[in-house]
Amino acid sequence: MKASAPLSVTTDTGGRRWPEPPAESVMVEIRDLGLSYGARPVLKGVNLAVPRGQTVAIIGPSGSGKTTLLRCVNYLARPTEGEIWVGGTLVGQRETHGKLEPAPECILRTHRTVTGMVFQQFNLFRNLTVLQNVTFAPIHANGRDRASAEEKARSLIARVGLSHKLDAYPSQLSGGQQQRVAIARALAMDPKVMLFDEATSALDPELAREVLVVMRELSEEGMTMLVVTHEMSFARNVAHQIVFMEEGRILQIAAPEELFSEDAHPRIKTFLAH
């Protein structure tokens, strides 16, 4: 399976060789991922492949490592072992003389622009208006000119239904509105993958619904998405695959119809029964 690397191995002094990238059709591939805080393992040997355009829901009990797994994808959390591939890029690593090396912060930044992340607490920039929140990263991280960044931002904000709030500050918006702005902000960077970290957990059911509608549309338009969620109906109706995690491991990966059926792992059936 492992093809020979194009680089000479005579200079190899123990560093790991550049691994084989995943197939073109795979947008996110997680290989043998492990993360420990000191002696406490949080993730253990996680493997997951997300095909282009698919939505994967990650469910499981609190403390099972769902959020940590998601945060590893954009290296907000640094895995202690394993690989993360996003859109053909090995995240958090760089190649020096054919060997793997942890990437410095400036390279990590470019890796992170490939993924868009939506947080549980929205995390909008509090001192900026809705429009400024959405244009900030394109202008200050990607060096886009203000006019084109604003044009794009306006259309994204319109898409999440908030054109009338362009000049509002985050504190003047409801939680659902803030989360929709946060989605527009992430989309403004043209990410290949969207990561949702319990994006609706801080919202009441009504506000959660308006966010879920946007998420569903995105999924249907073919965005590749990893969604950590407690919204079982979203997982069931929107996701292509569901990942069930427990104690830092993936217990089962299955299509929704399988996971919500009698054939599911007994532990999952108990979890879903509540």
């Binding site: 930044r109 470019t110 992170r112 992340m117 947080f119 607490q121 920039f125 509090r126 990607n142």
Partner: peptide
């Protein structure tokens, strides 16, 4: 709030900005 840093990091914004 620390979440402001987190959001900026996730967006690939340089620390100076």
């Amino acid at each position: 709030p620390k979440d402001q840093f987190e959001a900026a990091r996730a967006l690939g914004i340089p620390l100076s900005q």
